[in-house]
Simulated scan of single mutants.
Amino acid sequence: MQWDDLKVFLAVARTESLSGAGRVLKVDPATVGRRVARLEEGLGTPLFAKSPQGYAMTDAGQRLLAHAERAEAAMGAAVEELAGQAGALSGQIRIGAPDGCANFLLPQVCAAIMADNPDLEVQIVALPRVFNLSKREADMAIGVSPPAAGRLTVQKITDYRLHLAASRRYLRRHPPILGLDDLKDHRMVGYIPDMIFDKELDYLTGIGVERVALASNSVSVQFNWIRQGGGVGIVHDFAIPSAKGLVRLLTDQVSLTRSFYLIRHADDRRMDRLNRFATALADGIRREVARLEAEV
């Protein structure tokens, strides 16, 4: 069995299609199909079952996956060691993150890391959902709750705080907010209820808000609605310094604490380059949250 064949197998397993694997590998899908067929013939067993939904792994494919991922990690570690990457970081690293973290923390944190590592390429995938590291959607991900399953390692980065907020312009034009009962007379901003991908993000239900007039699956859209005077909503404290005129409300009655976690594939812990980047990333996020919250 050749390493190139295992790379093809991993690409199909993660994308669940020949065309998706072809895009990852930059080869024609027909070539991917031939390589998979050759590997299956050599092993004497089917690795995938084709259906209208795509290519699903068979039991044999599931058993091979663990070995292929260990081989991938070993190859990556060998390349790093032979390249002598004890100095500056280089190459491409992709981070998955919820868009609040991706918009208000990661740009400056990653810029600082790259200032010391000019050959490094960083990709930030800002999506309001949980990332599947097993399918290599990202090299590492930041989450707001630790995953309960999968061959993953989880490191708590830091706590962060959130409060109700509105713009001064909105508050001048609407009735005063002296208690939670007053919120029923105000336009609330929040998540689309059936698109909340993590229970830790269900802020408004916890304070008794039943109706969200301005809703989005993106925390950045919510933030801009609030900043522009659209209504009242829950805002990350670390985002407030980026918008003049935002006022925190009912801080003695509503004060939420959540956490960021750094999530990685277990096999990647043997890769020095990713370990060093993960350490710098976690340290940078921790410092940036503390700095920005101190400005509020």
Rank of each mutant, 00 (worst) to 15 (best):
residue 17 S to T: 15
residue 19 S to Q: 14
residue 22 G to F: 12
residue 31 T to G: 05
residue 44 G to Y: 08
residue 51 S to C: 02
residue 54 G to D: 12
residue 65 L to H: 11
residue 66 A to I: 11
residue 68 A to M: 10
residue 71 A to N: 00
residue 73 A to W: 05
residue 73 A to D: 03
residue 73 A to V: 03
residue 79 V to A: 14
residue 79 V to M: 13
residue 80 E to T: 07
residue 88 A to C: 01
residue 88 A to D: 04
residue 88 A to E: 08
residue 92 Q to R: 15
residue 93 I to H: 09
residue 94 R to W: 06
residue 95 I to A: 09
residue 96 G to M: 06
residue 96 G to Q: 08
residue 100 G to Q: 00
residue 101 C to P: 02
residue 107 P to M: 14
residue 117 N to L: 02
residue 119 D to G: 10
residue 131 F to V: 06
residue 132 N to F: 08
residue 134 S to C: 06
residue 141 A to M: 04
residue 144 V to S: 02
residue 148 A to C: 02
residue 152 L to E: 03
residue 158 T to V: 12
residue 168 R to P: 02
residue 177 I to E: 08
residue 178 L to P: 00
residue 178 L to M: 08
residue 179 G to T: 08
residue 180 L to N: 01
residue 183 L to C: 11
residue 196 I to V: 14
residue 205 T to S: 14
residue 205 T to P: 05
residue 206 G to I: 05
residue 212 V to C: 09
residue 214 L to M: 15
residue 216 S to I: 13
residue 220 S to I: 09
residue 229 G to K: 05
residue 245 G to F: 12
residue 249 L to S: 10
residue 261 Y to W: 13
residue 270 R to T: 10
residue 270 R to F: 06
residue 274 L to H: 03
residue 278 A to R: 00
residue 282 A to W: 04
residue 282 A to S: 13
residue 288 E to A: 11
residue 296 V to A: 08
